[in-house]
Amino acid sequence: MSGEKPILEIKDLTFTYAGAETPALKNINLQIFEGEYVALLGLNGSGKTTLQLCINAVIPHMIMGDMEGSVTVQDLDTAEYPTRELAKIVGVVFDNPEFQLSQMSVAEEIALGLENLGVAVEEMNPIIHEVLDIVGLSGLGDRSPFELSGGQQQRLSIAAALAMRPQILVMDEPTSNVDPIGKEEVFAVAAKLNRERKMTVIMAEHEVEVMAAYANRIIVMDHGEVILNGTPTEVFSQLDVLEKAGLRVPQVTEMAYRLEHDRSAHWNSVYPVTTEEAFQRIAPLFGGKHD
């Protein structure tokens, strides 16, 4: 990917909320490229949400505070472009689905963004159909958003963001208020968008197993700083660093780590992070057929 221009570039970003003593973000430097699926990990209060709010210019335009450094989205400096002007580039999904919905029907909820962009009414219905289809809510256009299940509501929030054809989808713990089945639905939609539409996904999550499977980059935050930034294998192999930050690694990684220490298995400090990977590497230890 070297040489390519990043779709999102964060340079020396430091942000302190108005009235706060310590900065919520400290000297963040990041480059994110088109088509990446980036998982943001970190404890509550580590700065994940703050960082995400910087991406679509909610910080510094809607939330007061002291911002240094720059955030550039598709060559647009967020200091100059307010959130509403970035809506066509960055779509956002927040943690509480109910707090994002406001309209009388599912179709109108999606149309809201299109109305604000001035999209012609004839073009709206095809777009509404398409995005409802992508998130698997076809046929629910006339329902009230508040009658949907949590997972459906969150997928509707995704659809509403998608309707504006963003290149980046920022999701802030999109499954934290959703039941287990709803969680799967939301993750599946995000993965599909990333795979099939080359959508750049930046997701803050606590579900390390899921992130290990879907993300191609993991960024770990602790006390407002980026402490790890790399592929899932690179990041999850740093067990001690993660542990210090109070974070868990995927269960299979943990098991591999313990196998190495108790049973002197050798992974060369590169641990498996998904069940599939773990199977591939552990199976040979038991002999028998493998390929």
């Binding site: 709010l53 679509n56 909610v58 809607m62 307010p82 959130t83 509403r84 002007e85 809506a87 066509k88 960055v90 779509g91 956002v92 927040f94 509480n96 707090f99 994002q100 406001s102 809201l112 963004g113 604000n116 962009l117 929030s157 509403a160 963001a161 504006m164």
Partner: peptide, 13 residues
Amino acid sequence: QLSISLESRAFGS
């Protein structure tokens, strides 16, 4: 939260 959400969908543009 809703105002941030709406603004993210170009409300007021």
